[in-house]
């Protein structure tokens, strides 16, 4: 989802500053409590507590919610040998690494096209952004049809240009299904990245671009030596944003393939969901274990990414 993460150089810098400017006369605790209390309450009850509870649950078998049975680390042992889980992690990582590159890359290229003084820029910007507004459910339904073997536009077009051999069951073929889903993801998110990149390009100091022009830089040169380096903080920010969003991908997969065929599109989210609510196993302990492990993975990756971000930032400024 867009805007779900807001990490970025400025965010981090502000974090380590002392207080923000403001009231030094020390407001009463009552005032602070009234302002901040509701938010902390929601946070504690709906985020912190469930997180702690998930980890706690992972040490139990919970067939009957009223009678959890302590089983120690047994769930973790099972998980370590769980082929499906391994497959789900692999697929999710493919999503998280590949989809953001495509999202951001296509978005950047589109932004550059619009930056090249073409007519109808405003209209194109608005039109290309539209897929972002559609819910995944709608996107899934529409693309189920677009990928239809007999009359979906993809296969129809292949056949029309004489490449009928390439027509496939895009979602039914275990080798193609994951790629087909990621393609939809790019369709949905490229416009979003385009808008952000375009805004960032427009905010570049125009003297820099003009200077590059004077240095007789062609479009390629300008792109490689001026625009992309200057946009790096934005691109990095977008990448992390997309990365985190893909770590939780669920809706699209669940509605289109339910993780199939043959686990080829299974993600951690869909697997957790299946084990908790869709299979007839009636155990909430095991999915809690998956969630706990995944929690650790997410934290570690995000910390790594932030390290990357911060060391880059130092180069930047």
């Amino acid at each position: 989802m867009p805007g779900q993460v807001a990490s970025g150089p400025s965010a981090w810098r502000r974090l380590f500053q002392p207080g923000t400017g403001g009231d030094t006369s020390g407001a009463s605790w009552l005032v602070l409590l009234l302002f901040l209390g509701p938010a902390l309450l929601v946070f504690g009850a709906m985020i912190a507590y469930p997180m702690a509870r998930t980890i706690y649950d992972s040490f139990f078998t919970i067939d009957d919610p009223d009678k959890p049975v302590w089983i120690g680390l047994a769930n973790y042992v099972t998980l370590a040998g769980d082929e499906t889980f391994r497959r789900a992690v692999l697929n999710t990582l493919i999503w998280s690494v590949a989809a953001p590159v495509l999202d951001v890359g296509v978005g950047l290229l589109l932004a550059l096209c619009l930056f090249a003084k073409v007519p109808f820029t405003r209209f194109l910007r608005i039109a290309w952004f539209t897929p972002v507004l559609l819910s995944y459910v709608v996107v899934a339904i529409v693309w189920l049809w677009l990928y239809n073997y007999d009359w979906g536009i993809v296969n129809v077009m292949f056949r029309a240009v004489g490449l009928g051999g390439l027509a496939s069951a895009w979602l039914g073929n275990p080798h193609l299904a994951l790629g087909s889903l990621i393609f939809i993801d790019v369709w949905k998110w490229a416009g979003f990245n385009m808008v952000v990149c375009l805004a960032a390009i427009h905010s570049l100091p125009s003297e820099v671009l003009e200077a590059a022009e004077l240095d007789n830089c062609g479009w390629g040169g300008k792109l490689r030596f001026v625009i992309v380096p200057l946009l790096r903080p934005t691109l990095l920010n977008l990448y992390i944003l997309a990365f985190v969003a893909k770590m939780k991908v669920f809706d699209l997969v669940w509605i289109m393939t339910q993780g199939g065929p043959l686990w080829s599109t299974e993600t951690v989210s869909t697997y957790v969901y299946k084990r908790a609510f869709a299979w007839n196993t009636f155990d909430l302990g095991y999915p809690a274990t998956i969630a706990s492990v995944w929690f650790g993975v997410v934290i570690v990756t995000v910390l790594l990414l932030n390290r990357l971000l911060r060391s880059r930032e130092r180069v930047e400024f």
Partner: peptide, 27 residues
Amino acid sequence: YRFRGNRLVYFILFSSIILPPQIVLIA
């Protein structure tokens, strides 16, 4: 407002932005 723990609260809230919600789904 300046108060002890201001940035700590900010940091905790900020971090939780990145958490995938399915982690807490079951709980």
